[in-house]
């Protein structure tokens, strides 16, 4: 078992970064915590500080004001960390990619481990994405 597998063997704690989004993905991520999907069963927990997190969830297009903050968060994160880009905007910039404040999709700013497309992705898709990432 490698170092990375060892780190992600037990309960994953998630940190959620909302870029310049339309709120849909934020709500769907929060929806994963509620009774129908309930990811806390698997030991996944949304935490308040990046320093406690194993996974960084990023959604929304990133604008010029968010860019430096996302970089700073990534630098503060304990390594290894898994980065998941959620939603069409997180993956490519989506409908906002032509906007005048757009500063590039997430993978141009920090390395991304998994992409979950959809506008917004359903909570099932978000769960499936994280499971796939763990089995990688």
């Amino acid at each position: 078992m490698g170092f990375k597998e060892h780190c992600f063997k037990k309960s994953l704690w998630l940190f959620h970064f909302a870029g310049a989004s339309c709120n849909n993905c934020d709500i769907e991520i929060l929806d994963c915590l509620t009774p129908r999907y309930d990811v806390e069963r698997f030991g996944m927990l949304l935490v308040g500080s990046i320093r406690h997190a194993d996974v960084l969830l990023v959604n929304g297009s990133i604008n010029q004001r968010d860019k430096s903050r996302l970089l700073e968060l990534y630098e503060q994160a304990p390594k290894p960390i898994l980065v998941v880009a959620i939603g069409a905007c997180g993956c490519t910039g989506g409908i906002f990619a032509e906007g005048n404040t757009f500063a590039g999709p997430v993978d141009k700013i920090i390395p991304v481990d998994a992409y979950i497309p959809g506008c917004p992705p359903k909570p099932e898709a978000i769960l499936a994405g994280v499971v796939k990432l763990l089995n990688k």
Binding site: G19, A20, N24, N63, R65, I95, F96
Partner: peptide, 27 residues
């Protein structure tokens, strides 16, 4: 932190496309 320049984007899109854009002002 959330500024996406929607009004400007809307001027680049056709009326039919703008509906999908304004829908994504707020989820």
């Amino acid at each position: 932190y959330n500024h996406r320049g929607i009004e400007q984007l809307s001027e680049k899109k056709t009326y039919d496309q703008s509906f999908f854009l304004v829908e994504r002002i707020c989820g």
